[in-house]
Computed example of a mutant assay.
Amino acid sequence: MTGTASGIEIRSSGFAVLPASMSLMGAASGVFVDTGLSLVLPTAGTYHLDAVVRASLGRMTAGENAFIGARLVDVTAGAVVPASEAIVVQIAEYGGTAATGLEWNGSTAISVEYAVASARTIRLEAVRQDINATGSTDHAGLGSDANARTTLRYHRVA
């Protein structure tokens, strides 16, 4: 659905797909990174923001705990969108002392209502968090391919 404001066409919804899978291994544990997936909310209003985030996480050491998280950021305001934080996938392996090969995949949804006073850019950020200091993550990344996509969507409701 579209409308007009001052002769400019305004879309009431938008959708974007992460074009390819990406690694989170280049950033330090606990540091959020820009995934490159973003949308522009075209005007003031109340929006439903939805993201589906697919991730995979691998560990190669026994007794480890790590997760991949995601959040939405209002780039224009320089702030995290309230209540948009989510754990996408987590590995917690507490038994034994021998090396263990684990890799988990998962997807999660982020759904929030967000009111803005003007046009805004919203982006998806992700983080790899190693909770235990005794080891490090072997593999961590977001997926977006024919198996499942990482997506971001808005719909203006008011």
Score class of each variant (00 low, 15 high):
34 D>Q: 08
150 T>R: 06
81 V>R: 06
69 G>W: 03
135 G>Q: 00
22 M>W: 01
52 V>R: 13
141 G>A: 03
113 E>R: 12
2 T>N: 13
109 A>P: 00
146 A>M: 09
132 N>M: 08
68 I>L: 07
106 G>I: 03
117 A>C: 04
27 A>E: 10
101 G>E: 09
93 E>F: 01
71 R>L: 05
20 A>F: 04
107 S>Q: 14
17 V>M: 13
67 F>R: 12
95 G>L: 15
124 L>Y: 08
88 V>Y: 09
44 A>C: 05
54 R>W: 08
39 L>T: 07
114 Y>Q: 02
73 V>E: 13
8 I>S: 11
129 Q>G: 01
8 I>K: 12
79 A>F: 02
158 A>R: 15
92 A>C: 09
33 V>L: 03
129 Q>V: 02
97 T>Q: 12
118 S>H: 07
24 L>G: 04
148 A>M: 08
67 F>Q: 06
123 R>P: 00
150 T>M: 07
127 V>R: 10
14 G>I: 03
25 M>G: 01
62 A>L: 00
50 D>K: 10
26 G>F: 12
32 F>R: 04
36 G>A: 03
94 Y>A: 13
73 V>W: 09
95 G>T: 15
38 S>K: 14
61 T>M: 08
60 M>V: 10
74 D>N: 14
132 N>Y: 15
66 A>H: 05
41 L>A: 03
67 F>S: 05
76 T>W: 09
133 A>M: 05
16 A>N: 08
111 S>H: 14
94 Y>T: 11
13 S>W: 07
8 I>W: 07
141 G>F: 09
121 T>A: 14
5 A>M: 12
102 L>N: 09
26 G>K: 15
110 I>F: 10
120 R>Q: 10
65 N>D: 13
110 I>Y: 08
54 R>A: 15
25 M>V: 00
109 A>Y: 06
149 R>G: 00
141 G>M: 10
62 A>C: 05
77 A>W: 08
124 L>N: 07
75 V>H: 07
101 G>Y: 05
131 I>C: 10
144 S>E: 09
11 R>W: 05
62 A>G: 14
34 D>F: 04
51 A>F: 03
158 A>H: 11
28 A>R: 12
39 L>P: 07
129 Q>F: 15
79 A>H: 07
71 R>F: 00
157 V>K: 10
90 Q>Y: 01
46 T>G: 12
69 G>R: 02
108 T>H: 07
94 Y>H: 11
12 S>L: 12
153 R>H: 14
18 L>F: 11
42 P>D: 10
129 Q>T: 01
126 A>N: 04
101 G>D: 06
57 L>V: 00
10 I>A: 03
123 R>D: 07
116 V>F: 13
37 L>R: 02
129 Q>L: 11
17 V>Y: 13
102 L>H: 02
25 M>N: 14
64 E>M: 15
96 G>K: 03
138 D>I: 01
46 T>P: 05
37 L>P: 05
40 V>S: 13
41 L>I: 04
56 S>D: 14
154 Y>T: 00
36 G>M: 01
1 M>S: 15
